[in-house]
């Protein structure tokens, strides 16, 4: 099946949760070295709940749409659940087969978020 389904194109053309949070508790930026795709994530976590999340980025339709979709998916959920998301969960979320050539694009968003939660804590002072 063609990977450029309506849902993906919708998130690509109008990504959700874009921007940068002013007072994040966590942040992280990462890129995909094979194509230069880039994602920056800011999060506000309170009592292990992801209260708010925003991302900025540039890159292909798959990386940007997947990032947009995953921010929607985890907003309001626990950090524990966000850390548990796997490659299979992301493929299921996208609803299309992602070939080996594009899987890194699809995972860039979630991997950046997980990195932010794990080691991107922002110093309060």
């Amino acid at each position: 099946m063609d990977i450029y389904q309506e849902k993906i194109l919708d998130h690509y053309h109008s990504p959700r949760n874009t921007g940068t949070l002013e007072h994040p508790t966590h942040r992280h930026c990462a890129n995909n070295p094979t194509c230069g795709d880039k994602i920056c994530i800011t999060l506000i976590v309170e009592n292990n709940i992801i209260v708010d999340i925003k991302f900025t980025g540039e890159g292909c339709a798959i990386s940007q749409a997947a990032a947009s979709m995953v921010t929607e998916k985890i907003k309001g959920d626990t950090t524990e659940n966000a850390l548990k998301l796997t490659r299979d969960d992301i493929v299921k979320m996208l609803g299309v087969e992602i070939g080996i050539g594009r899987i890194r694009c699809a995972l860039l968003g979630i991997e950046t978020i997980q990195k932010a939660i794990q080691c991107g804590q922002v110093n309060k002072n």
Binding site: I3, Y4, T34, C35, G36, D37, G59, C60, A61, G101
Partner: peptide
């Protein structure tokens, strides 16, 4: 358009194999 998207769509739509990236 991002080169990765161009390459994927070329392959899917008309089986044209090109390189994309750096």
């Amino acid at each position: 358009f991002h080169p990765h998207d161009i390459a994927t769509i070329l392959d899917d739509s008309v089986s044209v194999a090109i390189r994309a990236g750096q």
